[in-house]
Every structure is written in C-alpha cells, then in structure tokens.
Design a protein around this nucleic acid. Structure first.
Ligand code: SF4
Ligand code: SF4
Lengths: 133, 133
DNA sequence: ATATTAAAGACTCTTAATATCTTTAATTAA
DNA sequence: TTAATTAAAGATATTAAGAGTCTTTAATAT
C-alpha cells in the first residue's frame, strides 16, 4: 500500500504554484519540465486538482494554472483527496453492524487524516522558500 | 490506496485463532472455509503471519495453526506489518535533506500507526466474543 | 508405510496505476 | 477572422501489484 506517484507530483506542483506571484498563470509545459514528466500525464493530475477547486485553469494563449482563492486554507489532505479519492483505506464490503475491526481501522485512518488536515500547504511552501535563500 | 484483502483475511484469522482453546491447532482448510477462501491462497497469508511470529504452525497430521505465545501483545499494527510490509506510505525516491513534505507525510502515517499499535487484537477478540453471546 | 498438513514454487488472471497519442474546445493576439 | 496557444477529454497501450490456482516438497502423527 503506497500513495500514488500522482499524489507526489500534485503536492510538488501545489507548492510551486503557491510561490508564484499573484495572478500569474503557469502552463503545464513548464510544470511538467520542472518535474521531468510528460505534459499530458501531468495535465490529468492538474485537471483533478482543478475539479477539486484547489487550482484554477484558463485555456488558450497566456493561459495555464494558478492557485485558487482558497490558497491559505489548502491542506495536505485536500490535495490527497483530489488525487487518491476519499474512500476508506480499509473497506470491508460486508459492514457488519458495529464491527470492531472496522472501528479500529477507521479511527487509525482518522488520526492520519487529522494530521494531514492540520498542515497547510502554504506554510510548507513558505518554509521551503525561506530555506532556499 | 487501499489495504489489501490479505490484511482483512489476516485480521479475521487472527481474531478467530485468539478465541481457540489453548494448544488446539486449526488447519488452513477450516480457516479457509470460514472465510470462503481457497486454502492455498489463505495458506500464503498464514505463512506470512507465521514468519512474523504471530502464529505458530505445525505440519503433518493433527497439525495446523495456533496463536503464538505473544498472544497478549499482538497489535493491529503487527498484523498489518506482516501482510503489507513496513515500507512508508509516502516514499519519494529522492529524499532531499530535511524535506518538509516527507516530514508531514511521515508524521501523519506515524499517527495512524500509533493508533494501530495501541489496539491489541486480544481485546477486540474478547469483545467480539462477548457481543455474540 | 500411509495419511495429513504446512510451505514453496510456478503460474495465471485481474485490476489499478502509469503513461502516451490524438482530438476538441476555449482564449489571446495578430 | 485567422492563427497560435493552451487546457480538457477520449482512446489506448504499458506496467506493476494484487489476487488466486495448481502442483510439488517436506514434516509430522498414527
Ligand atoms: S467483522 Fe467487520 S471486518 Fe469482519 S466481515 Fe464483518 S464488517 Fe467486515
Ligand atoms: S522535496 Fe521532498 S518530496 Fe520533493 S523530491 Fe525532494 S525529498 Fe522528495
């Protein structure tokens, strides 16, 4: 069980977009080169992020992607939900009433999600930027 | 990203073995029927559990599986490690020094694992048994 | 010896992730 | 209006992992 590569790419892209000047759109071409990915592949991931409302896209010349207005509220969990979906990690198809096993597995997952929800991308981006200087 | 079915089967098998009378070995045949699985498939999972020291196997007539001496120490995490391996969920192959993204992802995973480690199977088994009565 | 049972190996099947190529639609700029 | 640019969508191919079966081997009890 592993996070998909798509999640990794999404996180990096989000951090990068966070650090762009306001109102400057970045094209998938540039974003893909940065991470050594094919533009079409990254495009699929970006479309997911856009559908989740985390970034905004404008087609056409001078178009591209920029971070959404929610910039300062976006958590790791938001990005992960966009790429991985939000189904439970442990999904027993049976769901016996009040199942104790499920209870434990779900609670554990909640603990992970709580942490991911508490960490905002903007803070990581700023920290990373400060570090580089 | 989902836990494998194997983990589900392993957890159920462990709970079942926990509730067996002392020193009674149960064959894979019986364990497989219980969960509507093929014996050979379940056998692979059981072998993993045995290698991890969670159960003990004895081949030959009257053989089978029984819970290990560590019965009262076995956590959910132990079982999950046996079936899923213990590699990190988020594994960026690059590992930049002091990477902030990895930090967050790792911490979140630790929070999940802490919960899984704190829950002992024996307690769930006893509870489930009490419930059925 | 024979029956029983776990372990291991080789193999198949299915599914999800990864990735590419092509077409379509939207937007800008000339 | 036309051409250039760029995201979105669709179709398809490739890869890797999970799920599962069948067969053979080794260990144990009777
Ligand atoms: S006991 Fe829980 S985990 Fe097991 S089959 Fe029922 S619902 Fe699923
Ligand atoms: S910054 Fe962190 S997650 Fe990104 S490539 Fe470097 S080590 Fe990997």
């Amino acid at each position: 069980m592993r996070y998909s590569n798509a999640t990794n790419y999404a996180l990096h892209t989000m951090v990068h977009l966070m650090l762009q000047p306001e109102d400057s759109a970045v094209g998938v071409q540039e974003l893909a080169e940065m991470q050594h990915l094919s533009p079409t592949y990254l495009s699929k991931i970006l479309t997911k992020l856009a559908k989740a409302g985390l970034i905004e896209s404008t087609p056409g010349a001078k178009g591209g992607y920029k971070i959404s207005r929610k910039k300062h509220e976006i958590s790791f969990l938001d990005v992960i939900h966009a790429t991985e979906g939000d189904t439970s990690l442990f999904d027993c198809s049976i769901h016996h009433e009040g199942c104790l096993i499920e209870n434990v597995m779900r609670q554990a997952e909640e603990n992970m999600k709580a942490e991911l929800k508490s960490k905002l991308l903007i803070n990581i981006a700023k920290e990373a930027e400060a570090k580089q200087k």
